[in-house]
Design a binder for these strands. Structure first.
Lengths: 347, 347
DNA sequence: CTGTTAGCGCTTTCAC
DNA sequence: GTGAAAGCGCTAACAG
């Protein structure tokens, strides 16, 4: 077992007393005589033989690997997305080649190349860089959320518009009459832009005056939130909004902390609903940081894998939207959830 | 560009009017005449040529890929570990093949096989399954924390003993006189077992009576914590411990929630220090969930990569321990941190 | 420095 | 069914 070179198909053939082709057939589950089948299997286990993936890949031009590009994996949403992708891939006996771009477009382009250089059979990309021009028409690629100009790349995402409408519906149901919206956006167009549209649509539906913060992601995010709060204070210190739908859970928590440090109570004075459904410690049953519109990560991942592995890529849907749902996370005056929680505490 | 087969080295050679070997040299950065260099480069870009990784791998028996095995990637500690591994790998122009075992030993063994079947050059394993017997002597493998019997597998981890001692040192410095310890452990031996030893050592050092909960991970963890609390209540409701060092941040939060639901204040009545240093939303500057002994994830990852890529594996250290440090996260009566935080809130 | 050539380990015709 | 043989695209050893 020590430093011995790996057994090759040739070795197996010799030991089994059959030809190379026969061994290959057994490995690839093609019919051979039971006798030969047995002898080959015997030799395989005796030599602890495992087919060399590279030789096989060279021949078949298939690698069994899918590149997954995400900005990073520390972000809990990306993490759970990758986690579920891995799960869906595994079901199909595929491997996950992870590429964390860390905001470096070079890195993403490099990963895209993996697909061209036959190191991977497909790419699932969740990216905020401008790599549209490096995507060649022949590669199997699916993007999450992100839209690329001039290209017919299948896109998968949550129903952001519907999710936003749900957020406002919920805030209204829980007593809000002045729901605001806060968003820091990436400069790249994607499906999550629909959250603003959903907010505006819901405002019109309820006859509310839209009131929102809509800025590009930047370093002054907390400061801007503070300013937003101050600019909505009446002389007696109360706020002109009583609920906020926030573009992401991350910013929802940021807003909550700032509101609290300014002496406002959440959810008593201001109710908050975020977006993403990020759970503490990444546990499937983990607590949400805030009440949120939860993205259906499992199904999103499965859909991405389904599309990237599709046999016929010519008939793929350009856009696939999956429903996101509201879930209580402590920052809404949700009567049902509150009573449920009390019950849990008693247990 | 559409459906055209990828250009091969042969195509490049023909277009450039040189031989295969010359092209290969250019690709592998071996000296050729400037004229040939130019012509080959020209042809390469003209044909958009990329070397086929599988053909190359077949020849060189190198793949440029490292398998990273973790239980999952939703757990923030594993996520940031993988994130940093990716970073260290990238510096060396290596790729990360991610395997989330999801507690399935079969899956881990399968990944180990990748290394044998030449699909990967090495393995970094953070695992809680019993896969020791499937590790062959010839594979480049490094484990995080986990110890395998009878095998000389390089191990990397935090200085768990030292970290535990620091935890108690800190609790004492912040006024504790009765620090307890709580731990739910995995049945597999690893370096993190040293946390208990560190606790016991520190108790002896300070002349404290050790007082701890030490159980295997199970489904009744919250219930057992509640029982632990109840069994430490004096008739007037106060607790016989005034600080708890908890084996992980995750359980530290669990304990904190239960203590609070029982009417105790953290850190006023009970101070808590966890272990791991998990940050909210995985941000490098993110808030800790609890005061904690922070594992040096960056250095741990770098060390793992360093060891797995070492040229001479015969002289590798069997164990490499990196220092973990205390960091304030709201659950200790840390005077310095409190004042710092107040300053921040004012900003 | 260059071109030629022999494989790396496997799959896949193709006659038998 | 089976075995022989021709490559997949690349690297490395060799003679020129």
């Amino acid at each position: 077992m020590k430093s011995k070179k790996n057994a090759t198909m040739k070795d197996v053939a010799k030991l089994a007393g059959v030809s190379l082709g026969t061994v290959s057939k057994v490995i690839n589950k093609i019919a051979v005589t039971p006798e030969n089948q047995r002898r080959v299997e015997q030799a395989v286990s005796e030599l602890n033989y495992h087919p060399n993936a590279y030789a096989r890949g060279l021949k078949t031009q298939k690698t069994g690997m899918i590149v997954v590009i995400v900005p990073n994996i520390s972000n809990p949403f990306f993490a759970s997305f990758v986690d579920r992708i891995g799960f869906s891939l595994k079901k199909r006996d595929l491997r996950l080649l992870l590429a964390c771009a860390e905001g470096d477009p070079e890195r993403e382009i490099d990963c895209l190349r993996l697909a061209s250089s036959n190191k991977a059979d497909g790419v699932i990309a969740l990216t905020y860089s401008d790599i549209g021009n490096y995507i060649t028409d022949d590669m199997a690629i699916v993007t999450f959320d992100r839209y690329f100009d001039n290209r017919n790349i299948p896109r998968v995402g949550s129903d952001n518009f519907g999710g936003a409408v749900t957020a406002i519906d919920m805030l209204v149901r829980f007593g809000c009459r002045h729901p605001a919206y806060v968003r820091y956006y990436s400069p790249f167009p994607g499906e999550s832009d629909r959250r603003l549209e959903g907010y505006l649509y819901a405002c019109k539906k309820y006859g509310f005056q839209p009131d929102y913060l809509n800025e590009e992601a930047n370093d002054r995010e907390p400061a801007m939130l503070r300013e937003f709060i101050h600019s909505h204070q009446t002389p007696d210190g109360t706020l002109t909004f009583d609920g906020v739908f926030v573009h992401t859970d991350y910013h929802a928590v940021m807003l909550m902390n700032i509101l609290q440090s300014e002496g406002y109570r959440v959810p008593e004075d201001v109710q908050i609903i975020g977006f993403d459904g990020i759970r503490q410690f990444g546990l499937p049953e983990g607590k949400l940081f805030v009440s949120s519109i939860v993205q259906p990560v499992d199904q999103l991942a499965e859909k991405c894998v389904e599309l990237v592995t599709a046999d016929d890529r010519s008939a793929l849907p350009t856009l696939t939207l999956l429903p996101a749902h509201y879930e209580y996370g402590g920052t809404t005056r949700d009567p049902q959830a509150c009573s449920r929680q009390n019950a849990e505490n008693r247990s």
